[in-house]
Each structure stands twice: as C-alpha cells, then as structure tokens.
Amino acid sequence: SFILMLSVQLMLLFSVYRVEVDSGVESVLLPFKTTVSLPKDVKVTWTNDSGRIVHMDQRCSCNSIRLEEQYRLYRNRTEMKKRFNLGDFSLILKNPTDRDSDTYTCSITNSSGNVLIKKQVLLNVKASQDVLTVKVEVDDWEPSVVLPCQYSQRLEEIVTVKWSRLDLNPNIVHQRQEADDLRGQNELFKERTSMRPEALDSGDFSLTLTEPQVSDSGVYIC
C-alpha cells in the first residue's frame, strides 16, 4: 500500500474594482479588503500595469524579507494603514494626477513566494480643466531653462505659488507668497530657481531654472 500526498495551491482572483477621482485631490484610496484567512507571514505588493512596484509591505514575525525598490514615480506618495489583521490591504496614493491613471494589482504572497490572493483596481484620474501639460526640452549645456505657467484670470486675494516635483522629498522646487519662501526648498535647486518679480500681479508664474542637468528631468507642477 502507499499514501498519495497531494499539495494544492489556491489563488483567489477578484474582479477589477474601479475608482475615479479628480486631479488635484489630496489622496485616493485603492481599496482591498478580504475575509480570507491568511497565514501569519505574508508579503503585500502593489504594482502598476507595467509591473513597476508601487508599494510593498509585509506582515512577518521576522525581518528576513528584502523589499524591492519602489518605482520613483511613487516615492513619498504611498501609504498603508497597517490593518493587516483586519484583512485591510488598501493603499493610499497621495497627490494623484492623470499620469497615475492605471490598473493597479495587489498580490499577497506567503513566505515561499506563492501568490495566495490577488486584487486589481482600475484608477482613473480625471484631469482638471485648469491642468495643462507642457513638454520642455533643453540641452544640458544651456545656461537656463524656463518652465512656463500663466494664469489669465484676475487674482482677488493673496495666493501661494508653489512649484513642486512629487518624486522628490522634500518636493518643493520654488515657492512664493508675496515674496519668495524657500525654507522648504529641495537642496537640488538651491540658488538655481527664480520667478519674475511681478509674477503675482501679471499672472506669469513661469519658473527659471539655471544650470539644467540630467537629474532635473521630471514632471514639475505649478
């Protein structure tokens, strides 16, 4: 006689959940809650449709799992509430823009790397009518480059103009409210940025960046 041992791996795949928000909101929640009983040690990985790592976390009794590199587009913009014991693996994505519109997949794997459960969320970030994307190209030998930003409507109150790059921490490139306020400026741009003196009166919020270099490549938001 003999004993036949059969190992079966069960992977649960849920239908795609759709989330839609307007560009400019502070954050958006990519929901994933499950009542499935999971082992104590699991790894949670959120990826985009291209397979890039959006966020990675773990529920583990040890620190033996090496977390892979998060894709730079999402650095300093993702957060999980650590409610794994409640079956909540939802992801918070901060400052979403239309570039974040994508299909996101959350995979929960065990200590052997086997996928136990998977969930997909389709995120659609609607671009605001006030959002305009402009592509600027410059050679690295140019002394400076202008990032254009004009506002045609009359400003009735004091406003703050903030230039930022969300893939950096801190993300402030330049900021002005009546006068330049560079206290939180990223060190990469120290003494390299300027705005026109009459910017708040003219509505021309364009930013001049001196000594442009390859590391300056990115998406700047005014």
Rank of each mutant, 00 (worst) to 15 (best):
S1D: 11
F2I: 08
I3H: 07
L4D: 13
L6H: 10
L6A: 11
L6N: 12
L6S: 08
S7Y: 10
V8D: 01
Q9F: 15
L10K: 10
M11D: 12
L12P: 04
L13R: 14
L13S: 15
V16N: 08
R18C: 13
R18V: 10
R18P: 05
V19E: 07
E20T: 09
E20Y: 03
V21Y: 03
D22T: 10
D22Y: 14
S23F: 01
S23T: 08
G24K: 02
L30P: 06
L30A: 11
F32P: 00
T34C: 01
V36R: 12
S37E: 13
K40A: 11
K43D: 11
K43A: 12
T45L: 09
T47Y: 04
D49M: 09
S50F: 07
G51S: 00
R52D: 15
H55E: 02
M56R: 10
R59Q: 11
C60G: 15
S61G: 11
S61V: 09
S64D: 11
R66W: 13
E68I: 12
Y71F: 14
L73H: 15
Y74S: 06
R75L: 09
R75N: 09
R75H: 11
R77C: 03
T78I: 01
T78E: 00
T78F: 02
K81Q: 15
K82F: 11
N85K: 14
L86N: 09
L86M: 10
L86I: 02
G87P: 04
G87D: 04
G87Q: 03
D88G: 01
D88A: 03
F89M: 03
L93M: 00
K94Y: 09
N95K: 14
N95V: 13
D98F: 14
D100I: 06
S101K: 02
D102G: 01
T103I: 15
C106P: 00
S107R: 13
S107I: 04
N110S: 07
N110D: 11
S111H: 09
S111Y: 08
V115S: 08
L116E: 00
K118C: 07
Q120Y: 04
Q120W: 05
L122T: 06
V125P: 05
K126P: 01
A127Q: 12
Q129G: 15
Q129V: 13
Q129S: 13
V131C: 07
V131Y: 10
V136I: 12
D139C: 10
D140L: 13
V145K: 04
V145L: 04
V146H: 00
V146G: 00
L147T: 02
P148Q: 00
C149Q: 01
C149G: 05
Y151P: 04
L155F: 08
L155Y: 07
E156D: 10
E157V: 09
I158P: 10
T160P: 10
T160F: 07
V161Q: 04
V161H: 05
K162S: 14
K162A: 12
R165F: 03
L166K: 15
D167V: 03
D167L: 09
N171C: 09
H174M: 06
H174R: 06
R176G: 05
E178K: 15
A179G: 13
D180K: 09
F189S: 06
R192Y: 05
R192M: 06
R192E: 10
T193P: 02
T193I: 01
S194A: 07
M195S: 05
R196G: 12
E198H: 10
A199C: 08
A199T: 05
D201R: 15
G203W: 00
L207A: 03
L209S: 04
T210H: 07
T210K: 12
P212K: 00
D216S: 01
